[in-house]
Nucleic acid binder design. Structure first.
Length: 961
RNA sequence: AGGUCUGUAGCUCAGGUGGUUAGAGCGCACGCCUGAUAAGCGUGAGGUCGGCAGUUCAAGUCUGCCCAGACCUACCA
């Protein structure tokens, strides 16, 4: 039942709704921002200011955005918005990575392979259209996250100008001497007759023939000596090292046998056969069983580590060579190959000695490169058949398929030569072409590389990593260092259709680059700027080379897409006026230490000698509630679109800010629910603030700093000091520090204390009297500050508050800077320490009130009267508030007495005892305080004295609170 | 298998250089209020600080090993 005096109260009132209804209202706000051209207005407002450039790492233009994309974009947006609030000109140019295999595969599904149903040129056109469509889809979602940026003019790696600049940057890197041509084994499908990318390979079980093959040592006497065996009766017996392989067809290409330098090898005598074998010590038992030799059929003569008989890095020549079982050398004997050492060798299976064919295995290739072991010729053609050459012709291998006949022929040769120790069928996981489902082979092909060492690139890049770049968190440095230290040369060529061409001419005989390559590249770039990458593929060599054209071949390889995105420091940061090079920051997930951070660094150092970024900030990956990675197959993904359509963007953003992004970021329904709870608290606090400055016009009603009541002055001062912390959190990219601090402010000092205390004054005092205007002034300052504090994170809500704030202001909170219009306050002796003490006293009193409540002697705190028995210092402090102490404690009466160990109850606070009594006075109908003067006024028999004063008189006077 | 990282109450996080009964907010339970009301206030219960050893008078904090998880790389001859 409403009191007749209710209309005389100043109750809170606001249009600002309690519930955000974010999923519906955020899109409306976005439309408004777009309509007013907010991004451009911010640019204009910050023109001429210091720049802060966060360069966007381009997501791949394929598929819907997932939660990881959302995290990345939101973090970037929070940083950019906070820097903008700090007064920086912080442009954000989002980008997309548009070339490459995944798009080709999608387009293949739609129109077929390039060169089959459609021409390469048409295929590229389809790729371009497809990529554009993907960009549109992702852009819509990114904008929905309320990420502010130049969405009208993003950068695309497939923009003609960008494609041209990618080629130019390649030219620059060639100019500095970092390019070299080499070979590399790649996944090769004999049915496609082409190379396969990693993504086109799938693993299936395959039946293979596994064989143990003997490679006899050329100098067995020396080998025995190396094993420390001196026994003349053995001297004339053959010694072989045994390899195990599941790809017999690669044996013709064998160029070495690898052993592990620190693994123990045994010299085993086969008694019956009268020959010796070298095998890994740990595998002797297994091998003998496999060969059908019983325990008494062999004897281990000696052991030696691999480094004793294998060639070590740095050694000019191999200490031992072995005879290839069947490949002929120039003379009558079979050719010999070196025994080398390699870290890739294990004693897990086989024999501990690895058949090494550099043309057919990555490890083989890498280890061979260390010793300069090279195959003279690739013996297998693109269809997986042995080529024809004198040696293969003689062995009758030419033309046979490595998949069957060729393989069997090799087995036959081995058996014929007596080199085959054992043949067995095994089933193992083996790479297959995902299209043909046929087993693939490894086949070395000519490729282009950016060399880590030929022009000192690795060294320079490492210098940048260690000395000029700031890594956040600090372990990012160790991570990228480790990754760079063991990285091979960067193979930048791909045999693909949808990619930026390696726009080079090489001599048809020598394979040397054209001497005027730098100049030619610029000419090509100009054409690509006009017509895109097709300009190169359509180009006739004569156009640029004239008469020389006959001697040169146009390279048709495309660039690794990591090169595209890696050189956006040039194609975007350098090319766009609003950006800077180097950029202030790159910010991506921790997978990019291998990816974009590295490709950007290497290309920038290669081209310009320095890093493209000053700071690299890394975030972790999202995992589910159990800490497991998100995957569609596990069904534990959290889709950002779903969150946006249910809880809303501000809640997703709050979650990003509230989570420690330096490690794994956990998301689950419960976590999002908790974040929605936190959001509601912040929102409601702001709503209550707005509701209480109802009717407040800052132009006419703002109370000067020196006139504020001490409690209000404290609130203003507290807020001002909190702002320093807020700024520091943003500067330090510590967003969880920010959200936690903000939350505590809303719950403790502000929500739990100040707002609760001033309600009485707000509601009951005269509408335009000083007591109320003083509090409103404080609330106004808090709101001005807080709207800005939350804007980088709760972008929608901040703007919504901004709309509800009185006074002249910018069109959007994002055009504003941090609030600095805090008033100068009077020095009153009521400082922060004073009020913090009061807060503790209040807590102690609450403890006692709760006991009375449990006894049912009181309900609301206004039904109580308290007496505080305090030590002198505390007594003096409390007495300073005089009669207004009761307002702070929210009791109907509060008096202070000297400490008396007998009186009241001991409270939580030492030196303070508290007496709680249920009030005996009548309750004022209007202010709900119980007071002796209720009913003294005949006109208003249900009111207390101060309410009479507030209703009829000039209004009560407040001195402190 | 290797490199980098993570593991503190149900949830999200604080806990410089080792030192009293390990903190906060949320959530939860109970209570109050009904003039912030799909709100607000109060009180309270929750932790062998991933595990095991060790160094030390003293370890969440240092060392080693192990377990679980994340990212990256390699391997499956």
């Amino acid at each position: 039942m409403d009191s007749q005096y209710k209309p005389t109260l100043n109750l809170p009132d606001t249009e600002f709704p309690m519930r955000g209804n974010l999923s519906q209202r955020e899109p409306e706000m976005l439309a408004r921002w777009e309509e007013m051209g907010l991004y451009q207005k911010i640019r204009n407002a910050r023109a001429g200011r210091d720049k802060f450039v966060l360069h966007d790492g381009p997501p791949y233009a394929n598929g819907n955005i997932h939660i990881g994309h959302a995290v990345n974009k939101i973090l970037k947006d929070v940083i950019i918005k906070s820097r903008t609030l700090s007064g920086f000109d912080a442009p954000y140019v989002p980008g997309w990575d548009c070339h490459g295999l995944p798009i080709e595969l999608k387009v293949e599904e739609l129109v077929g392979k390039a060169g089959q149903k459609v021409t390469a040129s048409e295929f590229r056109k389809h790729c371009r259209e497809y990529a554009l469509k993907q960009v549109d889809g992702q852009r819509k979602d990114f904008k929905r996250l309320m990420v502010l940026g130049d969405w009208e003019k993003p950068y695309l790696t497939m923009d003609f100008k960008t494609e041209a600049d990618i080629i130019r940057t390649l030219g620059k890197i060639i100019d500095k001497g970092h390019l070299h041509k080499g070979f590399k084994p790649v996944n090769w499908c004999p049915d496609c007759a082409s190379a396969l990318a990693e993504a086109e390979v799938e693993y299936q079980d395959k039946k293979s023939i596994a064989i143990d093959v003997k490679f006899p040592f050329a100098n067995s006497a020396a080998l025995l000596a190396a094993f420390g065996v001196q026994n003349d009766s053995l001297a004339d017996k053959p010694v072989s090292i045994v390899i195990w392989t599941t790809t017999p067809w690669t044996l013709p290409s064998n160029e070495a046998v690898s052993v592990h330098p620190t693994l123990e090898y045994s010299l085993v005598l086969l008694k019956e056969q009268g020959e010796m074998l070298v095998l890994a010590d740990a595998l002797v038992q297994d091998a003998m069983k496999r060969y059908g030799i019983g325990a008494d059929g062999f004897e281990v003569l000696a052991n030696a580590r691999g480094e004793v008989f294998g060639q070590l890095p740095g050694q000019e020549e191999a200490p031992f060579v072995v005879h290839h079982p069947f490949m002929p050398a120039t003379d009558a004997h079979t050719k010999t190959v070196p025994v080398i050492t390699g870290e890739h060798v294990t004693a897990d299976s086989g024999t501990g000695a690895v058949h090494t064919a550099p043309m057919h295995g990555v490890d083989d290739y890498n280890v061979s490169a260390i010793y300069g072991v090279r195959s003279a010729e690739m013996l297998v053609d693109g269809n997986g058949n042995f080529i024809s050459n004198p040696a293969l012709d003689a062995l009758e291998l030419s033309g046979l398929s490595t998949a069957d006949k060729g393989n069997f022929k090799v087995l036959g040769l081995l058996a014929e030569k007596g080199a085959l120790l054992k043949k067995a069928n095994i089933t193992h996981s083996y790479p297959h072409c995902w299209r043909h489902k046929s087993p693939i082979i490894f086949r070395a092909t000519p490729q282009w590389f950016i060399s880590m060492n030929q022009a000192g690139l690795l060294e320079q890049a490492m210098h940048e990593v260690q000395n000029t770049v700031e890594w956040r968190p600090g372990w990012g440095k160790a991570r990228i260092e480790g990754m760079m230290n063991d990285r091979p040369d960067w193979c930048i060529s791909r045999q693909r259709t949808w990619g930026v061409p390696i726009a080079l001419f090489v001599h048809k005989d020598s394979s040397e680059l054209h001497p005027r390559s730098a100049e030619l590249i610029e000419q090509v770039a100009l054409k690509v700027e006009e017509k895109g990458i097709d300009a190169w593929f359509d180009l006739e060599a004569v156009e640029l080379l004239g008469d020389e054209a006959a001697d040169y071949v146009k390279v048709t390889d495309t660039l690794d897409v990591w090169f595209d995105s890696g050189v956006t420091h040039t194609a975007v940061c350098k090319a766009r006026e609003e950006l800077t090079f180097p950029a202030d920051m790159y910010l991506e997930g921790s997978d990019q230490h291998r990816g974009w951070f590295q490709s950007s660094l290497l290309t920038s150092v290669a081209a310009y000698g320095h890093a493209p970024y000053k700071t690299v900030l890394t975030h972790g990956f999202t995992v589910d509630g159990q800490g497991r990675k998100m995957s569609k197959s596990l069904g534990n993904t959290v889709e950002p679109q779903k969150v946006l359509n249910s809880l809303g963007g501000d809640i997703l953003r709050w979650w990003v800010a509230d989570t420690d992004y330096s490690g794994e970021m956990t998301v689950s329904d419960e976590i999002l629910k908790r974040n929605a709870d936190a959001y509601r608290r912040v929102r409601n606090t702001c709503r209550f603030l707005l509701a209480n400055i109802n009717g407040f016009n800052p132009v006419t009603d703002l109370v000067a700093g020196e006139d504020l009541l001490p409690l209000d002055a404290w609130m203003v001062d507290y807020t001002r000091q909190l702002q320093d912390k807020v700024k520091a959190f943003y500067l330090d990219y510590d967003f969880k520090g920010l959200t936690k601090t903000l939350m505590n402010f809303c719950v403790s000092e502000l929500g739990g204390f100040y707002l609760d205390v001033i309600k009485d004054r707000q509601y009951t005092c005269k509408r335009d009297g000083l007591p109320r205007r003083s509090a409103q002034t404080a609330l106004f300052h808090v709101l001005e500050a807080m709207a800005r504090w939350i804007a980088p994170v709760l972008s929608f809500t901040a703007e919504e508050i901004w709309d509800n704030l009185p006074g002249e202001r910018e069109e959007s909170v994002f055009l504003a800077e941090w609030y600095e219009a805090f008033p100068t306050l009077a020095v009153t002796g009521f400082d922060d320490a004073y009020w913090q003490n009061i807060l503790q006293v209040k807590e102690a009193v609450n403890g006692e009130l709760e006991k009375a409540r449990v006894n049912k002697s009181i309900g609301a705190s206004l039904e109580a009267e308290v007496v505080l028995y305090a030590e002198p210092e505390q007594q003096a402090a409390l007495a300073k508030l005089g009669n207004e102490l009761r307002f702070v404690l929210m009791t109907s009466a509060a008096t202070v007495q000297p400490f008396d160990a007998e009186a009241g109850q001991a409270s939580e606070l030492k030196g303070l005892r508290v007496g709680v009594l249920p009030t005996t006075h009548d309750k004022c109908e209007r202010c709900w305080h119980h007071s002796a003067d209720v009913g003294l006024n005949a006109q208003h028999p249900t009111l207390c004295g101060r309410c009479v004063e507030n209703v009829e008189g000039d209004g009560e006077v407040r001195h402190y609170a």
